[in-house]
Simulated scan of single mutants.
Amino acid sequence: MNSDDNLIGRELERSAQVIMPGGWAVERERPVATLLGSCVAVALYDPAVKLGGLNHFMLPRFERVAGRDDVDALLAGDYSMEALLNAMLVRGAKKARLVAKAFGGGMVVSSLDRSQIGQRNVEFARDWLGREGIPLVASDFLGHCSRKVVLDPRSGDVFCKRAASSLAISQRIESQEQVYAASLAQPPKKSNIELF
């Protein structure tokens, strides 16, 4: 990334909608950003309608756990990719025009290195895009670095800034992922609303 790209990326980041693990967004104007460790983010773009979307998933596939119907399926790539694709199509994109850029899968959290979750996330993203016939035109995967990713939906450009895997960055990413995982472990709040 040259200095002009750095300036553009920083400007976009200031106004970006930030998505967390399990999140996704589809936009025409507002940039979308996320911070990745072992997770993967996939950006989809339709140049004809100038529509872009970005997701952020933690695991390749959703595995239902007995007694845990409230687990956020969008943390898994299989659900997250379908949600992003469907949101793009609803907003006017055509699958035949879509291109993808994908990032992440870094080994920055030592407790996750043993499971090779980053590698599995990368393989899932490549396989899914291949099965769907969506060309992967750019990627930055694996390694021992975290990544800040910013999508400009007006142009389809994606800016990826690598950060060396320092203890502080690793702890920040690990903390975000642990907070989200802990929130999933809590039983859902009781509601006075009755669904019928």
Rank of each mutant, 00 (worst) to 15 (best):
S155V: 03
S3A: 13
R147L: 11
S80P: 06
N55Q: 05
V40P: 01
Q176L: 13
R64G: 15
Q119G: 06
K95L: 14
L35M: 14
S139H: 11
A182M: 14
R14D: 00
D70S: 08
V122M: 08
G118V: 02
K190P: 13
R10Q: 03
E82P: 02
A33P: 03
A185Y: 11
G143N: 04
L44R: 01
Q186P: 02
V108E: 13
R131S: 13
P187W: 04
G77D: 10
F62R: 14
D113E: 05
R131P: 04
P135I: 00
F196Y: 00
V158C: 13
S166C: 12
G105S: 12
P153G: 03
V99A: 14
A125T: 00
S3R: 13
E29V: 04
V149S: 06
G67F: 04
Y79K: 07
S166Q: 12
F124I: 05
A43V: 06
L84N: 02
M1C: 14
E63V: 10
E11Q: 03
A87M: 04
F62I: 09
L136S: 09
A102Y: 08
S110Y: 10
F196R: 03
V42N: 08
G92T: 01
V40D: 08
D4Q: 09
D157G: 12
A181S: 00
D69Q: 12
F124W: 08
G23D: 05
A25Q: 07
Q116T: 05
A138W: 08
G92A: 05
L184I: 15
Q119F: 14
S155F: 02
R61I: 07
S191F: 00
T34S: 13
V26D: 06
S183P: 10
V99Y: 09
S111L: 15
I134R: 06
L136T: 04
M58H: 11
R14L: 01
N2Y: 07
G143Q: 09
L12M: 10
I117L: 06
R30N: 04
D70G: 11
A163G: 10
A181G: 00
P47R: 09
L54F: 03
A33Q: 10
A125F: 01
C39A: 01
F159P: 06
G53V: 02
A138M: 06
G156N: 08
R154K: 13
A76T: 01
P135T: 03
E177G: 04
G77A: 10
A25E: 10
K101M: 15
R114I: 08
D72P: 06
A66E: 06
Q119E: 15
V149T: 02
D69E: 15
V108H: 11
S165Y: 04
E63H: 01
T34K: 04
S80W: 03
R114C: 00
D78M: 03
G77T: 05
D127S: 15
R28S: 09
V40C: 08
